[in-house]
Amino acid sequence: SEEELEEFAKEVLRRGITIIVNGIRITEVEIFVKVLREILEKR
């Protein structure tokens, strides 16, 4: 749901943790923004 997305976004921003994806360091915020864009483009 959109509320869950908002909560996830807030949690990500609070933690600001960097994770490893395919050997490249990407912040969770960047991943969230990318996923959010993909979701919005599909609408």
Rank of each mutant, 00 (worst) to 15 (best):
S1A: 08
S1M: 11
E2F: 15
E2W: 15
E2Y: 14
E3T: 13
E3P: 07
E3W: 15
E4C: 09
E4T: 10
E4D: 10
L5D: 03
L5G: 02
L5K: 02
E6R: 15
E6P: 03
E6F: 15
E7I: 09
E7H: 10
E7Y: 11
E7M: 12
F8I: 03
F8Q: 01
A9Q: 03
A9F: 08
A9T: 02
K10W: 07
K10L: 13
K10A: 09
K10P: 03
K10Q: 09
E11V: 04
E11H: 07
E11G: 05
E11F: 04
E11W: 08
E11I: 06
V12I: 13
V12S: 03
V12E: 01
V12D: 00
V12H: 03
L13T: 01
L13E: 01
L13R: 00
R14G: 12
R14P: 00
R14H: 07
R14M: 10
R15M: 08
R15G: 10
R15A: 11
G16H: 13
G16V: 13
G16K: 02
I17G: 12
I17P: 04
I17L: 13
I17Q: 11
I17E: 13
T18Y: 12
I19N: 00
I19K: 00
I19H: 00
I19R: 00
I19V: 13
I19G: 00
I20C: 12
I20W: 09
V21K: 04
V21C: 03
V21W: 15
V21G: 01
N22S: 03
N22L: 06
N22F: 05
N22V: 08
G23H: 05
G23W: 12
G23R: 03
I24V: 11
I24L: 13
I24F: 09
I24H: 11
I24P: 05
R25H: 14
R25W: 08
R25P: 14
R25D: 06
R25N: 09
I26R: 02
I26C: 04
I26D: 07
T27N: 10
T27C: 05
T27V: 12
E28G: 07
E28M: 05
E28T: 15
V29S: 08
V29Y: 09
V29C: 04
E30G: 11
E30Q: 10
E30R: 05
I31T: 10
I31K: 12
I31E: 15
F32K: 01
F32I: 07
F32G: 00
V33G: 02
V33C: 06
V33D: 01
V33K: 03
V33I: 14
K34C: 11
K34Y: 03
V35M: 11
V35P: 00
V35F: 14
V35K: 04
V35L: 14
L36V: 03
L36Q: 00
L36W: 05
L36N: 00
R37M: 10
R37T: 07
R37I: 11
R37A: 04
R37W: 10
E38H: 10
E38G: 06
E38C: 10
E38D: 12
E38W: 13
I39N: 02
I39K: 02
I39W: 15
I39Q: 05
I39Y: 13
I39G: 05
I39H: 05
I39D: 00
I39V: 05
I39E: 04
L40P: 02
L40E: 03
L40Y: 07
E41H: 10
E41Q: 11
E41F: 08
E41A: 14
E41Y: 07
E41N: 14
K42N: 13
K42L: 11
K42H: 12
K42P: 04
R43L: 15
R43D: 07
